[in-house]
């Protein structure tokens, strides 16, 4: 990963935000159209990986709001909590709870969607955790 090209760096600088936005788009619309937390997460991870290839893993880490291992923990917690919420209504674990009114842009929001967000975060976290560490592991 030592070889970096100027061209790639420039391209990534533009591509990465696009890819990230696309990934969020995939996540949000996943419930109704092709997409979802998995694909969204994978695309986002790909964006960061691309960045890591263009710049360096270290630079990519600096861009991340949370370290990958924390992302995993947060993602798992969100997924778990989205299921636990139903318990407070006296329903079985993971029973869907939906807001009455759809939100702008996002659409209908319910616990399954929150669950999908958890999935999204875990996927990003894991992919980055694996690939970044592997890329840094130069021996």
């Amino acid at each position: 990963m030592k070889a970096r090209s100027m061209l790639l760096q420039v391209a990534v600088a533009y591509l990465m935000p696009l890819l990230l936005i696309f990934s969020i788009f995939l996540l949000i619309r996943g419930h109704n159209e092709v997409g979802g937390g998995f694909v969204g997460g994978l695309v986002a991870a790909a964006a960061f990986i691309l960045h890591a290839i263009a710049e360096s893993p270290k630079a990519t880490r600096a861009h991340l709001p949370l370290s990958p291992d924390k992302l995993i923990a947060v993602g798992l917690s969100i997924a778990l909590l989205s299921g636990v919420l139903a318990l407070f209504q006296g329903n079985p674990f993971m029973t869907g709870i939906w807001l009455k009114q759809p939100l702008p842009v996002i659409g209908k929001v319910g616990t399954p969607f929150i669950f999908d967000v958890g999935v999204y975060l875990v996927v990003i976290g894991v992919c980055l955790h694996i690939l970044l560490n592997l890329a840094e592991d130069e021996r």
């Binding site: 996943g30 419930h31 997409g35 979802g36 299921g83 993971m94 209908k108 399954p112 669950f115 999908d116």
Partner: peptide, 18 residues
């Protein structure tokens, strides 16, 4: 509340698998 049946299965019907 979802049109993408595969995704609904993944996050709701069989979300536990996920």
């Amino acid at each position: 509340q979802g049109r993408n049946v595969v995704n609904v299965i993944l996050v709701d019907f069989r979300g536990f698998d996920t």
